[in-house]
């Protein structure tokens, strides 16, 4: 039977070619899924916010408001795509593309199930940190190219905040890296078969979550946007699909941080009875809900308090965590 199939196969379709085709298909599916989930989240967030704040939220379009996304998309596509005459045109167009691309590229390194995932690199975690670093430019350039005071203030706040929080975002992950002995995310997930890293690395988890909120500038760290003071900050001059890319990019960032938290601290796809993909989706959805719940319940702190909190509280905690982790690993090491 297998011989007949082998005979039917065309000459160029070697196992290598098939492996490449499958990998490319997987990458495409993951990319589309990430964008689609990001888009759907915009509506899910508004419905959940409405529910938690005891009001309806968008419930008019379609049954239970499920078609709201379609309505939003139609609206955003047909708006005038306006570039202000005083703006720096190249950078103005480039900024939203960086916002979307840097975050989507980071999905490459996330292992979804044993068989699913795009890149299996030894520097996986460093790649995420690098892309996080590149992502700062989107806000920075968007704010500067708009040539608008509010946008510039938003961009400057954002760069200061992101640089500060990226310092201990990287450091809070080093505890996990030290325990697993690898930057490779698949090896980190496999190292958590017995015990999820949330237990030994609880401080690291707290710091990473806070830094994650700050780096994708979600509420309560949405200083660069701050509707009440800055009237939407860095994307104030953007309209149509360019605004859409900033907007969806924020949700893609949320999804990315949730998936990373699951991979690094909650055992990735591991879980009893049910298939791996189910566990991964369930855990990631939980953290997405957490993102939305935090937005629904916490007020936004003053800007200087955000900076002070990062440097005075989070950085020392991260360093202590790293020190203790290193000490324990050295003590437990044989010899």
């Amino acid at each position: 039977m297998s011989r007949t199939i082998a005979n039917l196969r065309p000459e160029w379709l070697t196992p290598e070619v098939m492996a490449i085709a499958v990998a490319m298909l997987q990458a495409l599916v993951i990319l589309l899924a990430a964008v689609l989930v990001g888009a759907i989240l915009t509506v899910v967030e508004r419905r959940l916010l409405g529910w938690w704040q005891d009001r309806y939220g968008p419930n008019r379009v379609g049954p239970f408001g499920v078609l709201q996304l379609v309505a939003d998309m139609i609206k955003i596509f047909f708006k005038e795509d306006w570039i202000p005459p005083f703006a720096d045109k190249t950078l103005f167009v480039l900024a939203p593309a960086i916002a979307m691309a840097s975050l989507l590229l980071s999905f490459m390194i996330i292992p979804i199930t044993p068989g699913w995932g795009v890149a299996n690199w030894n520097i996986g975690l460093l790649f995420f940190l690098a892309m996080g670093g590149i992502n700062v430019y989107s806000v920075l350039l968007g704010g500067w190219a708009s040539a608008n005071k509010y946008a510039l203030i938003g961009a400057m706040r954002s760069s200061a905040q992101t640089i500060s929080y990226e310092v201990f975002m990287g450091l809070s992950l080093m505890g996990v890296v030290a325990m697993a002995g690898s930057f490779n995310l698949r090896e980190i997930v496999d190292a958590q078969q017995g015990l999820w890293y949330i237990v030994p690395q609880f401080l690291g988890f707290c710091n990473f979550l806070i830094a994650g909120f700050a780096v994708v500038h979600r509420h309560p760290f949405d200083q660069p946007e701050a509707e009440q003071e800055l009237a939407d900050g860095y994307h104030i001059e953007y309209s149509s699909m360019k605004f859409g890319m900033f907007f969806i990019g924020e949700y893609v960032g949320m999804l990315l941080v949730s998936a990373l938290v699951v991979t690094l601290f909650f055992g990735g796809w591991h879980g009893p009875v049910l298939p791996p993909i189910f566990w991964f989706v369930l855990k990631t959805s939980f953290f997405l809900m957490l993102f939305i719940l935090v937005r629904a319940s916490l007020p936004r702190p003053r800007y200087d308090r955000v900076m002070t909190f990062g440097w005075i509280v989070c950085l020392p905690l991260t360093l202590i965590n790293l020190l203790v982790t290193g000490g324990v690993i050295l003590l437990a090491a044989p010899g």
């Binding site: 460093l126 940190l129 670093g133 590149i134 700062v136 430019y137 704010g143 500067w144 640089i163």
Partner: peptide
């Protein structure tokens, strides 16, 4: 991470 992601951001920041 170090050059493009941190140091150059400060450069852009100052120029802005």
């Amino acid at each position: 991470i170090v050059y493009a992601g941190a140091i150059m951001v400060l450069f852009v920041f100052v120029v802005m």
